[in-house]
Amino acid sequence: MLLIDCPHCGPRDETEFHYGGQAHVAYPADPHALSDREWAEFLFYRDNDRGLYAERWSHSLGCRKWFNAIRDTVTYDFTAIYPMGQARPDTAEAAPQASAIAEADPQPHPTAGFEGAVR
């Protein structure tokens, strides 16, 4: 159960939110100027980053506002939340939770289990 800091309502449980996938994918200004391949890219292809990922959320059971967030797709930690339309911030600096005590080793720890995904 993620805790998501809605910019309008404050921190709320994940179950109040709707996930919107990758952020910063604009609807093409003129879809008809695109090739089929380019249109397919818009329709079906999204980044799928392992690590920090700019994504969209909507507080659908609250204020119904959409916003952008940067979240680590491995640790699930949010490092930035910012309005729609704003450019992706530099998360290296924006990370509010880079506190002294680490969340967990970012690298698989030798003793932390052997459940690393297959490759």
């Binding site: 159960m1 993620l2 994940e14 996930y19 996938g21 980053d49 994504e55």
Partner: peptide
């Protein structure tokens, strides 16, 4: 789970 994730874990709800 609704969100993209490589953590091999999800929410308890």
């Amino acid at each position: 789970d609704s969100y993209n994730g490589y953590g091999q874990r999800g929410g308890f709800h």
